[in-house]
């Protein structure tokens, strides 16, 4: 146990060194890559609560990611222009906008989960995918907020004492958010609630037989994962200062799933490794050939067929 905490501390310390390394190598885009990894890792870690711990293969996680992002974008839009519906003012302060983004995504997850969790297995996969696609079309058709083209805004959300233009500071903000989310999820999976989730993955029928209302547990987990994805979406919107329906595209949901499985589902560090592997692999393949997906696809098939427990599984 102590060794695990030590390993976690070492990992955090190494992550803190990224900006220094980037500066030493003269490659500032490493900081953006690091920020990207931290953000995706947050969303993937939340999704792992569903896939790895509860055994729910949600294929619509991009919806909550995108809703979180659009909350930031829309609030910035109204802060710069007129009020929403003429009454609701826009917001630009991080301590107001980010909790709002989390709340919006969690609420959407509650609604989608309430419907989708009436089914299991393959229907659940298809239905979560379909509901996410519904939100995708919603934002495509909202011409006020840019529709297809997306919505840009000028400044990152304000955090007292931090310059919104400072990319290094924003990297540390995202890293802090990741550590906090992982700590929260650590508490969750080791609580009684978390044990029930894992019990439901292993034997749902038995959990019901002991008298647990499994539906409520699943719905709670789904809502937590949605809120976490909302936070990731809000951070992503801040990183790019831009949101578009691409954030809700179904391939984004697929990417999150890949990160979880690639790293190792059912562990907290797995999704982080998966997110890092995915982002680094993509950027490496992309500078090599514009058709990087033709390599990425077979890699994925290969991982599923032969490396069933992900990258972490290779070290065990």
């Amino acid at each position: 146990m102590v060794r695990r905490y030590l390993a976690a501390l070492v990992a955090i310390a190494l992550a803190c060194l990224v900006p220094a390394v980037a500066a030493a190598l003269g490659k500032p885009d490493l900081i953006t890559l690091g920020t990207q990894i931290a953000i995706y890792a947050i969303a993937a870690a939340g999704l792992d609560l569903l896939i790895g711990y509860t055994g729910l293969s949600s294929f619509g996680h991009a919806a909550f990611f995108g809703l979180g992002g659009y909350t930031v974008g829309i609030m910035a839009f109204h802060a710069a222009g007129e009020k929403m519906f003429g009454v609701i003012p826009g917001l630009t302060e991080a301590w107001l906008v980010w909790p709002l983004a989390i709340a919006v995504s969690a609420l959407a997850a509650l609604a989608i989960g309430a419907l989708s969790l009436r089914t299991t297995g393959v229907s659940f996969i298809m239905i979560t995918l379909a509901f996410a696609e519904m939100f995708f079309f919603l934002f495509v058709s909202l011409k006020t907020y840019g529709g297809d083209d997306g919505l840009g805004f000028r400044r990152r959300n304000g955090i007292p004492g931090i310059s919104p233009r400072d990319d290094v500071a924003f990297y540390y903000v995202c890293l802090t958010a990741l550590v906090l989310v992982l700590a929260l999820l650590h508490r969750v999976v080791h609580s009684r609630f978390g044990r029930v989730l894992q019990g439901m993955r292993q034997n749902p029928r038995r959990m019901e037989a002991i008298g647990l209302a499994t539906y409520r547990y699943k719905l709670t987990a789904f809502t937590i994962a949605g809120g976490v994805a909302g936070l990731a979406g809000a951070l992503h919107a801040n990183l790019l200062r831009f949101v578009s329906p691409d954030m809700l595209h179904w391939t984004m949901s697929g990417d999150f799933m890949i990160m979880v499985v690639l790293g190792g589902a059912g562990t907290l560090i797995g999704p982080v490794i998966g997110a890092a592997a995915m982002v680094l692999l993509q950027s490496w393949l992309a500078q090599w050939t514009e058709h990087w997906m033709i390599v990425m696809g077979p890699i994925l098939v290969f991982v599923v067929l032969f490396a069933r427990r992900g990258i972490l599984g290779l070290f065990r």
């Binding site: 896939i51 293969s57 294929f59 297995g121 393959v122 996969i125 697929g254 799933m257 890949i258 499985v261 058709h291 997906m293 033709i294 990425m296 696809g297 077979p298 890699i299 994925l300 098939v301 991982v303 599923v304 067929l305 069933r308």
Partner: peptide, 21 residues
Amino acid sequence: HMDQVLATFGMILFFNEAMAM
């Protein structure tokens, strides 16, 4: 089903790119 989704998702990436090429 998760594994099936991931592997066939990988195939979509492959075929989309192959057709583009």
